[in-house]
Write a protein that binds this DNA or RNA. Sequence first.
DNA 1: CACAGAACTGGCCGATCGGTCAGGTTCTGA
DNA 2: TCAGAACCTGACCGATCGGCCAGTTCTGTG
Lengths: 179, 179
Amino acid sequence: MARSRTRDEILAAASRQFAESGYKGTSLQDIAAEVGCSKATLLYHFDGKDAILRELCAPAIAELKDLLDEVGAAPGPAAARKIAVEGFVELAMRHRREIQVIYGDLPALLLQPALRPVHQLTEQLHATLAGTSGTAQSRLSAKFVLAGLPAVIFACTEFDDATLRAALIATAGRALESL
Amino acid sequence: MARSRTRDEILAAASRQFAESGYKGTSLQDIAAEVGCSKATLLYHFDGKDAILRELCAPAIAELKDLLDEVGAAPGPAAARKIAVEGFVELAMRHRREIQVIYGDLPALLLQPALRPVHQLTEQLHATLAGTSGTAQSRLSAKFVLAGLPAVIFACTEFDDATLRAALIATAGRALESL
DNA sequence: CACAGAACTGGCCGATCGGTCAGGTTCTGA
DNA sequence: TCAGAACCTGACCGATCGGCCAGTTCTGTG
């Protein structure tokens, strides 16, 4: 995979800047400046700005897909919801920046080719959290949780991971417990 | 105030496009095209792109300030929190698009001159929701609610306002009730 | 040492960005 | 009737965007 040191540094700088300034708000020149190389070097290692975003988000998107497979194999709706919440918290914490980039710039960023699969995956996750009842209240709580989790995970760097994980699962659980 | 019909149409188009595509993702040309006028006309009516954003968000920001004054005059922490949640839901619903623009693009958009006051106001709101205990859990829940509310309000156009308002207050209340 | 291929760069491209300006048109009140 | 205000526009500006390419430097191998 990671074939060159410069290539990794480009991904790292892009991750940081995309999360901080947004995809549109970050130029190739900005990334190149942080890496300490020329803009042409970025385009030597990647097929374009979109390709950088795609490769950056690929692991997170793949894990999101795995999570949904796991959710699909759950014995019942309650178990599915539990897996979805805890799994998403875990996933979002492992990929803080990417999740921030993806979920922080919706819906504008969803039009980006690199994030094509995300929309469907998010819809599935939403459906799981909302449960089978399909009431307005349940769908709304699900959206609430899906929006709140990434925002908090990115914003809260002050807590250690264990504390953050436990608190998020508790808060999300309370928000969803109307069902 | 609104001195011309074209001026209002510019604000309406800008509001819609900023919310849909983000501030950076919307060009003056895009707005002009929707209005059906030239780009120069936008800059005749406004001092620049930033001025459009400023005027667009001014009412929402003013109401946010009023809300915080009201919160400050509450008899106790519990009452303050109740006023904050219900007031913010009401405010965010009345200014769906603007709230989406402001809260949907953080933190990149906060650097925009037009949104200078927003950061401090948001901090105050956060402090109110978190309460005086200052525990990690309470601060985290507060951020969770502040991120979730705007996202849901913008995303959920399927429910009537009364349903939405009631459900949001209930969900936010549950998320916060660890205190 | 020679050489192939990977890594990297400066310079350039067309497009588009926000913004300016001179000038034309339309509205309005004395 | 007519001057001035209000309104609107096409043409243009410098800056910056993502992307491209020819050419140079680095590096590992026979």
